[in-house]
Design a protein around this nucleic acid. Structure first.
Length: 430
RNA sequence: GGAGAGGUGCCGGAGUGGUAACGGAGCAGAUUGCUAAUCUGUCGACGCGCAAGUGUCGCAUGGGUUCGAGUCCCAUUCUCUCCGCCA
């Protein structure tokens, strides 16, 4: 009888460090005490059941073997006597097996409710107001009185058509035209080139993923309603390239020498954004479909924070070259993603809107995703350990575009940042 | 969409009801005077144990038959080949 083989390495940590975990999760404003207690109790029940089941099965295996040998040597009568003794064992093992599966399922459901444990650096706090600004760079231009927000500029120069998108699909699906479309393509190519230059290998992945992949990176079950779901085939449109790229490593056991693993990929991203309305979703601020270039790393646990810093530095160089004013925030516990241990958000300043727009989110998931993915590596002792996964946007296109339009507007038109000119083939939109 | 074949460990590949051959890779240990060879060991998950160890489960997935299932039955799924359709 097959027993479900869920991977529960998290359990060991909960057993060992329950109190530490409870304290750490308080940063997320979660009181996990009861939940963890339930987990431990259920775990105990599960282990007790498993021991009983193992013993029952061992006995019945032994009997079967004996029966086999008796039949072989022609002692059918003795064999038949033994046969009669197997009935109870069979019943017991069926009952225990069912109990075990139920316990494991319940346990798994509880474990899915536990978010990642925040890193020490994560500041306490509830909302985005409590995020900690750790870096700021770039000149915020002084705009003239007739400066326009990007959606007006987009209309004025005919480069983005929001209404047309509404006609074809609905709100949040803009149509990029002419130089607008070309600028998007230029940004994608530029980002991919910059990423590959520093060692990320370019990859193209599917835009639809199955349920297992959604669970692997943690979008499921936490963000069930945020992804577009194709019912007929039970597939999800990806909300980020993180999902397909990281799931490359689902059920994989790496060698230590495989590290570091660095991928970059461009994909469109699809998000339902259920529940977000209002002025803040105007123009390119919040879309249902947008383009993004992503970087993903799989690292040895001892190196993952160094890798995180490296990713942050790399994203900085992109914004520096684009000459956009930006800042970096260390997300507080309340704003931290479910699966992340430490996240840095990059925000570009939208001059005409007088607000900051998130354009990148760089995170270390430590072993959280690896636990779900069963992504491990063999350490020098031959033991399997969970690897660490990281990812970051480099970058999300629409808000970069908004930043360029608003910050680079002049009376002559939109001045394209120098680094993009070779990719665009023009230096001004007018 | 129709028809057929198939899914066995890291890879290759046997196994048609009695408890996963064999070959290779990688890794570890031992040994040998040296770009290497040889020998031995070596899959994963979970439980118990300080440990040595030991038990259970795993042959695509889920059920079923049986004292016993890789092997038989049912369902699902994926891959390949041919046909159809098609960028």
């Amino acid at each position: 009888m097959p027993i479900k083989q869920n991977y529960m390495l998290q359990l060991q940590r909960i057993r060992d460090e329950k109190d530490i975990i409870i304290v750490a999760l308080q940063k997320r404003n979660i009181d996990a005490a009861t939940l963890l207690e339930d987990v431990l109790q259920l775990d105990e029940k599960r282990r007790a059941t498993q021991t009983k089941l193992d013993n029952t099965l061992a006995e019945s295996n032994k009997l079967s073997k004996e029966i086999g040998l008796l039949f072989k040597s022609g002692k059918a009568q003795e064999a038949n006597i033994l046969k009669e003794k197997t009935g109870d064992l069979k019943e017991d093992s069926k009952r225990l097996g069912d109990e075990l599966n139920t316990a494991m399922e319940e346990l798994q459901n509880l474990l899915y409710q536990i978010p990642n444990i925040p890193h020490d650096l994560v500041p306490a706090g509830n909302t985005e107001k409590d995020n900690e600004e750790v870096f700021k760079e770039g000149e915020i231009p002084t705009l003239t009185a007739d400066a326009l927000p990007h959606w007006e500029l987009a209309k004025k120069y005919g480069i983005i058509d929001f209404e047309l998108g509404v006609k074809i699909t609905g709100a949040g699906f803009p149509v990029y035209k002419g130089k607008g479309a070309r600028l998007q393509r230029a940004l994608i190519a530029y980002f991919l080139d910059k990423n590959t230059e520093v060692g990320y290998s370019e990859i193209q992945v599917p835009y639809l993923v199955n349920e297992a992949s959604g669970y692997g990176t943690g979008q499921l079950p936490d963000k069930e309603g945020q992804m577009y779901h194709i019912g007929a085939d039970d597939l999800y449109l990806i909300p980020t390239a993180e999902v397909p790229v990281t799931n490359i490593f689902r059920d994989v056991i790496l060698n230590e020498s495989d590290f570091p693993i660095c991928y970059t990929g461009y994909t469109p991203c699809f998000r339902r954004e259920a529940g977000s309305y209002g002025a803040h979703v105007r123009g390119l601020n919040r879309l249902h479909q947008f383009d993004k270039v992503e970087i993903v790393r799989v690292e040895h646990p001892s190196n993952s924070y160094q890798a995180l810093d490296g990713m942050v530095e790399h994203v900085k160089t992109l914004l520096r070259e684009l000459k956009l004013p930006y800042r970096i925030l260390r997300l507080c516990g309340g704003d931290l993603g479910f699966t992340s241990a430490l996240t840095y958000d990059f925000e570009v300043f939208s001059t005409a809107q007088d607000r900051w727009l998130e354009i990148s989110s760089v995170s270390n998931f430590e072993a959280y995703q690896a636990n779900r993915l069963k992504l491990r590596f063999k350490d020098h002792n031959g033991k399997n350990q969970l690897a660490h996964t990281l990812n970051g946007s480099s970058l999300a296109l629409p808000r970069v575009l908004a930043g360029i339009l608003e910050n680079c507007q002049t009376s002559q038109g939109i001045r394209i940042p120098d680094v993009l000119v070779p990719y665009c083939g023009f230096d001004i939109i007018n």
